[in-house]
Design a protein around this nucleic acid. Sequence first.
DNA 1: CAAACGATCTCCT
DNA 2: GGAGATCGTTTGC
Length: 204
Amino acid sequence: MSEMLSSQFYRQPTLELAKALLGCLLVKETPDGTASGYIVETEAYKGPDDQAAHSYKNRRTKRTEVMFHHPGVAYTYVMHTHCLVNVVSGALEKPEAILIRAIEPVEGIELMKERRKTTILKNLTSGPGKLTKALDIHMGDYGQKLIEKPIYILKGYTPAIISEGKRIGIDNSGEAKDYPWRYWITDNPFVSKHQKEENRIHLP
DNA sequence: CAAACGATCTCCT
DNA sequence: GGAGATCGTTTGC
């Protein structure tokens, strides 16, 4: 059992946090068992100036409310049939968040196969809607602190090489669509989509 | 009230 | 590997 990320950890700038979360272990415990996976892909959404963010222009609704809270809580929202999970970042009243787009299964793989109704390992968690289903993350987790059960993030490992590129599926977001705020562990097979334009960056 | 939005799944090639 | 159907919530008319 590795160490829980501290509330301090979540206070780093959003772009830094988005990279630092790569390789960390996302865990969800339920009565059916525990399922977890290493975070391998993230996207940063930055507050009032990012047209792709729900909190663009400080839009504050029942849905986005938790983005204005302290960093380190879960922001879940339903996109059609799927629930997506974000890590809230930025200081209080700074509505920023990091979307978790893919994880690599670690614990509870049989449980994930049941929940996902497939036995193909690669299909379990290789997308933002898939991983929430596999870990049973839902709107009941909205606003949950990520430093205590039943949903939390542990220190994992530091990836040797990570890549950055444009975010996925935000073509209608003006100039913000070109911001390179998507990060993933280079060549990890569970990353949701591959893109040709990428920069490889080494962590300090 | 109608439209838009984005991820997944299915089917096809 | 790619195009189209599907779906629930939010936002625009």
